[in-house]
Amino acid sequence: MININCSKRNKKAVTLAEILLACVLMALAFLPIMGLMSSSIKITEQDENTQRAVRLCQEKLNIVMQMPYDTFGKSITSKMTLDTTDKKNKDIALVLGEEVFDGIPYKSILTIEPYTVIYHVPTCDFSLKGADTKKAAPNPANWGWTDLTYTVTGKVLRYSVTVKWKDHGKSNEKEYTLSTLKADLRKK
């Protein structure tokens, strides 16, 4: 009887040691997983901030693109940076400068710069073309083609919207910029 009790006690003692060891091993296994989860949460938060910055950039650039070509001046000859909302002109629904979302300040900056484009235009001699097309078998090679280049200024602007922000608990500033070209396509 005594022997049986002893054997039971021995079995229990071994199981307890095993369980303790198992717990330690489990805890060790869980540690990197917990670390992964925590870094995943941080990455998701940072992605959310980035996406908000992208949305802000898009929103502002879309507004700028819908504005008439000369909204920011009849002739822009040098780079122009706007980082505050134009409070005098209430018609412009463009908010620049600092906006706070979920406790994070986002700063929007609009840059406008002139874009010079050099157009390469193959031009034919219209008198030669006219004479050639009257023939039975016209050949465009006989139309007197020349390659001309035209430097066009004051017709295209480059708009860039930059949004800057800092993630929670981070000291380095992040930024995202969207840029596009807008041509003066108004009919004269």
């Binding site: 898009q58 235009v121 295209v156 480059r158 596009t180 396509l185």
Partner: peptide
């Protein structure tokens, strides 16, 4: 998104070229 806006900008350049030199384009 960046690519989209830049490509749109390129189309603006193309349309302006057509608007400035239509006769050459039609030839």
């Amino acid at each position: 998104i960046k690519l989209d806006y830049l490509a749109q900008g390129m189309t603006e350049l193309a349309i302006l070229k057509f608007q400035l030199y239509p006769a050459d384009f039609y030839a």
